[in-house]
Every structure is written in structure tokens, then in C-alpha cells.
């Protein structure tokens, strides 16, 4: 892992190089609908360009969701098995408020923010009292409770029970079918903004304490850091971001189903983070893209047995890229730059 200790010249150059590369990627994604239109000869808001945008939109949503998971797993070093709770809460809150209350998007945004914030504080206060596997089990139990709740027939009127909610009435101006191009930019902008916010937070004094807790919680506490408070901050921040990803997920899919609260949804976050590289922000986002596109390509090639093939691919990734795509790349670069410039280590 390349740790920027200070902003010395070399680090500044590296940061600038990263920023430039990032900018190119964003530019490419921003132009993607038109590039796709150029390549296929079809209009940007129809045919294959439209379909491909759909794949990317789902990837952007999962990118935010995976990033939020990595705040916990990669940065704070705590393994949650209940992350789907936040994501699913965002999905259901959005779907229910649109379907039953016909709230505006701004209000729903604030509602999701508030609900997942409170959820994060309450469940964090309880679950963070235990560590390691116990924390994983407690969070799993909470998420499963929400999953069961979403299937409960008592609440069918509001949640649709095991059928979920369908035909969510989203405002026309962002209807994902009719306004695909607009929704594409909405989702891209959403992922970009969340990334920038998360980058600020992980590079803040608080963000550094969180990393210190991952590295050695005892020592962090011995230095005077109330590690519980910092873990709670990370938990809430991560939960709120997952909830917002859930909100956009509901707007995009126009439905809410119990599956978004299931343990599979948590495991997806785990897979995306591992594939992309835990402890980086770009990694899980890339992991989300890889998982999304791989899923599409494999299911087209292998049909319903594609998860088997995916399993093999995943094992290969873990074997050959033990720190994920971005994590391994960072290490490899740090390693080769040390070789090129011995001054880096010996000076």
C-alpha cells in the first residue's frame, strides 16, 4: 500500500498523475453515450448505446455501494455481514415514499439520509460493542431481521411482502426508460460526488485515525483515541452512503424486492471490494464495474450456470491479485518505483 505520509514533491507528482488519470476516466465515461453512438451508428438514447448505459448505471450504483462497504472493511478494518440492511433500507424508503406518499425527490433524499443515519447510530452503538466474528454475526442478525420484516405478510399493504413493490412512480424527468441519457448522467454524477466526498473524509484527520484503528486498535486507544467513537463514525458514514446507493437503485429499477436486503447483497459488496482492492476507494468502484460486466458477459456466454464460471474467475483473481486489482497495482508500482529510484528508500 502506498501511504502518502506528507505532500512532498514526489507524492504531489503522484497525486497529480492519479488525478489526471481519473479525469480521463471520468471524461471517457461522460462521453461514453456519444462514443457508443459513433461506434454503433445508433442514436445515443436508443438501441445498443442505451442498453450499455443501462449496464453502466447499475455499475455506478453498485460502485457507490461497494465504496461504502470498503469504508468499513478496507479502511476501518471491520467486517460487516449486514451491509445490505442500509442498502435495502434506502431502496425500500425510496420505493415506499414514492408509491404511498408521493414525496418529492429532495424530500426523499433527506429522508433516506436521516433514516440511515439514525439506523447507523442505533445499530452501531449495539454491534460495535463486540469485535471480529461476533460483530459480523450481530450485523448479520440485524440485516436478516430487516429481510424477514420485508417479507412479512402483515405489512403487505406497504411493503408488498415477498412480492416487493413494483411500478414505482418516479418523476417523468428522470424516468430511467424514457430519459436514459439523463439518468445516465445522474448516476455518473452521483458516483463521482460520493467518491469525492469519501476521498475528502478518508484523507481527513478523522479518516487517518480510522486507518490507525484498522492497523492497530490497541495502540490507537493507548494514544488517546476513543476508538469506539471513530468506529461509530465510520459505521454511520458507510451506512448512509449505502442507503443513498439504495435510493438510486430504487429509482433505476422502479421496484423494491426483499432480495436487496438479503445476505447476497452484502456478499456482493464483499466480492466487489475484494476484486477491486480493499482499502482503496477506486478499487471497490472498479470491482463493481468488473462484477457487473463480468456477470453480463458470463451469463450471455454460459447461461444459467454462469455463477460457476464466475466462481473460477473469482478464485483466479484472489490468487493472482491478492490485494485486488487496484491494491495489487499500487503495490506493484510502489515496488517498481523503489527499484528505479533507490533514493526513495535509502535517502
Amino acid at each position: 500500500m502506498v501511504e502518502p505520509g506528507t505532500l512532498d514533491v514526489r507524492a504531489k507528482q503522484a497525486t497529480r498523475r492519479w488525478n489526471l488519470q481519473g479525469l480521463m476516466v471520468v471524461l471517457f465515461l461522460a462521453l461514453f453515450p456519444f462514443l457508443a453512438s459513433l461506434v454503433t451508428g445508433e442514436p445515443p438514447d436508443a438501441g445498443r448505446p442505451k442498453f450499455w448505459q443501462g449496464l453502466l448505471i447499475q455499475a455506478y450504483i453498485f460502485a457507490v455501494y461497494a465504496l461504502s462497504y470498503d469504508i468499513l472493511m478496507g479502511y476501518t478494518g471491520i467486517l460487516s455481514f449486514g451491509h445490505a440492511m442500509f442498502f435495502g433500507t434506502g431502496v425500500y424508503a425510496t420505493a415506499m415514499l414514492l408509491k404511498h406518499a408521493e414525496w418529492g425527490l429532495g424530500q426523499i433524499f433527506l429522508a433516506v439520509l436521516l433514516i440511515t443515519f439514525v439506523q447507523g447510530v442505533l445499530f452501531g452503538l449495539v454491534s460495535l460493542r463486540v469485535k471480529g466474528v461476533y460483530f459480523a454475526m450481530v450485523t448479520l442478525a440485524f440485516a436478516e431481521a430487516f429481510y424477514i420484516l420485508s417479507e412479512a405478510t402483515d405489512f403487505r399493504r406497504w411493503t408488498g411482502a415477498e412480492d416487493g413493490l413494483h411500478g414505482i412512480p418516479v418523476p417523468d424527468f428522470i424516468n430511467p426508460t424514457d430519459q436514459r441519457l439523463r439518468f445516465y448522467y445522474l448516476a455518473l454524477g452521483f458516483a463521482l460526488i460520493v467518491y469525492l466526498i469519501a476521498r475528502r473524509v478518508v484523507n481527513s484527520p478523522t479518516g487517518r485515525v480510522i486507518v490507525a484503528i484498522r492497523e492497530n486498535e490497541t495502540r490507537a486507544a493507548t494514544l488517546g483515541y476513543n476508538t469506539f467513537a471513530y468506529k461509530l463514525i465510520a459505521f454511520v458514514f458507510s451506512g448512509v452512503l449505502a442507503g443513498l446507493a439504495g435510493m438510486v437503485h430504487a429509482l433505476w429499477n422502479l421496484n423494491a424486492s426483499p432480495a436487496v436486503l438479503s445476505v447476497n447483497t452484502t456478499i456482493n459488496a464483499l466480492l466487489m471490494t475484494i476484486i477491486g482492492g480493499a482499502g482503496t476507494l477506486v478499487g471497490p468502484m472498479l470491482g463493481a464495474g468488473v462484477l457487473q460486466l463480468l456477470g453480463y458477459v458470463l451469463s450471455r456466454t454460459f447461461g444459467p450456470r454462469w455463477p460457476l464460471v464466475f466462481g473460477v474467475v473469482f478464485i483466479l483473481i484472489v490468487l493472482f491479485l491478492p490485494y485486488g486489482i487496484v491494491g495489487t497495482w499500487n503495490r506493484w508500482r510502489a515496488h517498481s518505483s523503489t527499484k528505479d529510484k533507490p533514493s526513495l528508500s535509502s535517502k
Binding site: 505520509g5 505532500l7 481527513s204 485515525v209
Partner: peptide
């Protein structure tokens, strides 16, 4: 973490800025 970051975190611990989420630590 780097040697510098190990020590810097110890210095930061005694300061008033630990709960600043929106400033670059550098």
C-alpha cells in the same frame, strides 16, 4: 503505515483536530 504517519498519528492524538472530517490531514 509509514514511520512518519505512525508518529504523526501520535502527535495528532493530543491535538484538537481529531474530529475534523472535512480537512486534508496534510
Amino acid at each position: 503505515l509509514t514511520v512518519l504517519e505512525n508518529v504523526r498519528l501520535a502527535v495528532q492524538a493530543r491535538g484538537p483536530d481529531n474530529f475534523k472530517l472535512w480537512h486534508d490531514y496534510r
